[in-house]
Amino acid sequence: MHDIDLNLLKALDALLAERSVTRAAHRLGLSVSAMSRSLTRLRNVTNDPLLVQAGRHLALTPYALELTERVNETTRNAYALLQPAQKLLNLATLERTFTLRVNERFIDLVANALAAELQKHAPRVRLSFVGKYDKDAQPLRDGIIDLELGVLGTRAPEMKTRMLFHDRFVGICGNNHPLLQEPGITAERYASYQHVVVSRKNNLYGPVDTALARQGLKRQISMVVPGFANAINIVRHSDLIGLVTLSSLGCSLIDTEQSGLTHFELPVVTPIIKISAIWHPRQHDSPEHRWLRETVFSVFQRKHNCPTT
Rank of each mutant, 00 (worst) to 15 (best):
V130H: 03
V125H: 02
N90W: 03
A116Q: 11
F129A: 03
I107A: 08
L109P: 07
A116D: 14
Y133V: 15
K132Q: 15
A115Y: 06
L127T: 01
D134A: 13
F129M: 04
S128W: 05
L118M: 02
E117H: 09
L89F: 12
A111Y: 09
V110L: 08
L89K: 08
H121V: 03
V125T: 00
D108E: 14
N90T: 09
V110N: 12
D136S: 11
A115N: 01
L114T: 10
T97W: 12
K132A: 15
D136R: 03
R105W: 13
R96E: 11
V125Y: 02
Y133G: 15
Y133Q: 14
H121D: 10
E95V: 00
K120Y: 08
R124H: 05
N90Y: 07
L127S: 05
N112F: 02
S128V: 05
R101Q: 13
D134R: 10
T93I: 01
A115K: 05
T99G: 04
I107E: 05
T93S: 14
R124C: 01
Q119G: 12
H121G: 07
D134S: 15
E95T: 12
G131L: 06
S128N: 14
K132M: 15
D134Q: 08
L89C: 12
N90A: 02
L100N: 04
A116K: 06
H121C: 07
T97M: 08
R126W: 08
E104D: 14
F98P: 05
E104Q: 13
T99A: 05
H121K: 06
E104G: 15
L100F: 04
N90R: 11
L127G: 00
P123G: 00
F129I: 01
R124W: 04
S128Q: 08
K135M: 14
L100A: 00
S128F: 05
L127F: 09
R96H: 09
A116E: 14
L89A: 10
N90H: 07
K132P: 11
V125K: 07
N103R: 03
L127Q: 00
V125P: 04
D108I: 04
V130K: 02
L89T: 14
T93H: 14
F129Y: 11
A92W: 09
N103Q: 07
T93L: 09
R126M: 10
R126A: 08
N103F: 12
E117M: 13
N103A: 15
A115M: 06
A122N: 07
N112R: 07
L118A: 01
K135H: 14
K132H: 12
N112P: 10
L118T: 01
L114V: 11
E95C: 00
R101T: 10
L109D: 15
V110S: 07
K135Q: 15
A116R: 11
L109E: 10
R126V: 11
K135A: 14
A92C: 07
L91H: 07
F98A: 05
E104L: 11
I107G: 08
L114E: 04
L127I: 00
R126D: 03
V110H: 06
N90K: 02
R96M: 06
D108V: 06
Y133N: 15
L118P: 09
S128M: 02
A92V: 13
A113F: 07
I107W: 07
